[in-house]
Design a protein around this nucleic acid. Sequence first.
DNA 1: GTTTTGACTAACT
DNA 2: AAGTTAGCCAAAA
Length: 111
Amino acid sequence: MKTIADDNNSPELNHRRIWQVVSQIPEGKVASYGQVAELAGLPRAARLVGNVLKKLPPDTKLPWHRVINSQGKISFPYNSPGYKRQKALLESEGITLLNDKVVMKYYRWQL
DNA sequence: GTTTTGACTAACT
DNA sequence: AAGTTAGCCAAAA
């Protein structure tokens, strides 16, 4: 018999929570992995957010590219295909990178 | 069960 | 400012 706690902590539900938070990041804004985790009710599970995004299907409508690390940098190896793709997506919605970093002061998503 | 892994972070050099 | 370290925690192996 599944307990309520089990249901509320199932991998599937965690994924759904994260997905839900990411979907709310407005165009032209960014959030850190840690921020997404916290808003998803999973404080300190920043790494989980990355692991979940990693599994997204290539054709997802989720704005995964608006999630970057706490330093304002893209968490793909520098100039890797993923890096370039994310950078292009960010710039396409008006987010400028200075020295390979998003200036969080300007672009951080605030509720 | 235990161990390893990672699209992370804050705190130290 | 840039590199290192230790902590983090859910998933997968």
